[in-house]
Design a protein around this nucleic acid. Structure first.
Lengths: 211, 211
DNA sequence: TAGATTGTTAATCGATTAACAATC
DNA sequence: TAGATTGTTAATCGATTAACAATC
């Protein structure tokens, strides 16, 4: 049955995409069945952790057999919401915004890019991936007309707070924030920060300490 | 004095860049002194945690006074190795590689971009940020000639494992991996993974559960 | 000196791992 | 049935928070 009532900790949630990734690989290699023990060896975690994690969401395995790779893959995909057809827009058509627009993995994971916005007149009308770059003036209208679940914030930190609040007010459900600041928004919008500099500094720390 | 002997946990290390960021902001606003209590309120963490974290590295404060913002900022920067003038190269001159090359924050944090490499003949010779894109054939020669501390892996997962091993063998100290795979390298090279898809899927989970 | 705030120890909380009965 | 492996409870470990003596 599993432990579906208890609140699932973020530690567990952050491991789900990794399980999903490994299961996808197994699937590609036509492996149909896997035990928590074997998966644990491939992933470098304990079998106990895998079973505990999965049982936050349900009992997906079978005693004596293990887990069906395909079934578990789909279940985790479903838990992650990958089959909900979430649509995204990108705010900021600079290098990072374009890179993210062209990142094929996101589409592979079920996310649909619906629009790209910027404030620079030079860019408006240009196309990225067959999607025309629109001016930020058109943002409100666009979001009201189309369903937009996730906004990717690929703009400098100067303007980001205002834009984020605006998007939250428009009913966007999630903000994927690449700007170098922590957003503090008056809303129950979900925010996922990707502070690339922080990550690089963590790497720098590790190098520094080892040598 | 502080607790300099004990191994510092990754949970603590990952919070250091955030402290650094907030202290930098305070500095910009000409705030010279801060208590753990006030910083904790700004950052949304406990004062206890801040004091515990800092004391892994030394006693940077003063009873009755708090912390000197500038001193603490510099100390954390030093712990993170930001003043060591680490040099980086980027492997992969696609959208992501270019975006990272143009990301000014990294230079601001003391990292110097020394080279960009790709395999596509169309790109070789082109310039990104005044740095000529070189063919991967030149990689070994380049790394042997110049000091390269960190390699940024902005290439598809197909080739990444081989390139990573090659870089590790050449003595590069850290790999900042953006490819959609976990590297498993025979070496004591430090690896920091940035799995953007994982981050997006975590956000997707949060949206899905809330609605 | 009195007030403030640190550094550090002790208490609590949560997450991970181990163990094992249930069961396929 | 016997062997394998799950789901789940209990034990352990580590990280966070609280408390307070030290001291500026």
């Amino acid at each position: 049955m599993g432990n579906r009532d208890k609140k699932v900790s973020m530690a567990v949630v952050r491991r789900l995409p990794r399980y999903y990734r490994y299961l996808g690989e197994l699937l590609k290699h036509d492996i149909t069945r896997i035990s928590s023990k074997e998966l644990s060896q491939r992933m470098g975690v304990t079998a106990s952790q895998i079973r505990q994690d999965l049982n936050c969401f349900g009992g997906f395995g079978q005693q004596g057999y293990g887990y069906s790779v395909e079934y578990l893959y789909k279940e985790i995909g479903n838990i992650l919401g990958l089959y909900n057809g979430y649509t995204t827009i990108i705010i900021g058509a600079g290098n990072l915004g374009r890179a993210l627009a062209n990142h094929s993995n996101f589409e592979k994971r079920g996310f649909k890019l619906a629009g790209i916005f910027d404030i620079s007149d030079d860019l408006i009308g240009e196309e990225v991936r067959n999607i025309e770059i629109m001016h930020m003036d058109k943002l409100d209208e666009f979001v009201k007309l189309h369903r937009v679940d996730i906004a990717v914030l690929a703009i400098p930190k100067q303007g980001v707070s205002e834009v984020a609040q605006r998007l939250a007010n428009l009913g966007v459900k999630g903000l994927w924030n690449f700007s170098y600041t922590d957003l503090n928004i008056e809303s129950d919008v979900n925010i996922e920060n990707v502070h690339l500099s922080d990550s690089l500094m963590t790497l720098s720390y590790q190098i520094t300490q080892k040598n």
